[in-house]
Amino acid sequence: MNVLDVRRVKDRVDRIPRRFLPVIATFLVFVLTFGTGSVRYEGFASPQVMTNLFVDNAFLIVLAVGMTFVILTGGIDLSVGAVAALSTMIAAATLEAGWPPLAAALAVLASGTALGLLMGLVIHFFDVQPFIVTLAGMFLARGLCFLISVESVSITDPVFRELATGTISLGEGVTLTYSVLIALAVVLVAVYVLHLTRFGRTVYAVGGSESSARLMGLPTGRVRVGVYAVSGFCSALGGLLFSLYMLSGYGLHGVGMELDVIAAVVIGGTLLSGGVGYVAGSVAGVLVLGTVQTIISFEGTLSSWWTKIVIGVLLLVFIIFQRMMMRRPG
């Protein structure tokens, strides 16, 4: 490559808006980790391993989408893991009580959204920090699980079992589950809402500068409450997918899942101070986490706790990367 080419490449890199850089970095990290896996392990670079990343992390993708909305406004939602667990519990309990599957699913989605809405209202109207309110939400949701049942409740409903085990063939023996389709649909809807509706634009505006957004006459209060409702809905839906994945409801499902979700969103390039980030980045963040997990299981000798350490290190690297980006504004 001669000097001119280098310069041309540099020009092109310079022309990429800075707000895309973190997302691009995430995709690079994903390609790198996946590439490392492919080189090191036989059978890693197969289409089925790739699709399994989605199959095993469908619920995480949905949760990360909801979290992205919240973090984009500069907030945080610690309750997502607990609300997901509560959703598995409500689903299992209502199905056990003989509810039709659709009604059970609707009950789950309605209760998750209501919980999110409630937290948003408290945050907005009482001006309490999101951290504390969603921490209370987390306690509440986990506690409610155990009020329903202390034991794990298995799901025997035929429709749920069919949805859970049913696969869609992509040819050549590669299969997907319905959960993946739902997760991808959620991602598409989220992209639409964030980028093609006024609600989405206001989400970004609130995260960029809430006082400016208010002076511009945007409905900031509605958006601040709304994102927690969105996150509650996504947590409930993610919980439903998780109940398909586990085929049980249990109060200890998804302990610490909120950390994975926050990590995925941050690794996906969303700034925790709000205003910058993309749903696609969060999906990439989930895939990075999934790849790390897959590599560790392929390695065999490495134990599962390495996942947490690697996630922590990735989180740190991305936070410092973001910090450096913020220090030299254009």
């Binding site: 209370a136 939400g137 987390m138 306690f139 509440l140 986990r142 506690g143 409610l144 699980c145 155990f146 009020l147 202390v150 109060g251």
Partner: peptide, 8 residues
Amino acid sequence: DAILVFKA
């Protein structure tokens, strides 16, 4: 485990 509800 339902202690969490009270804490909330």
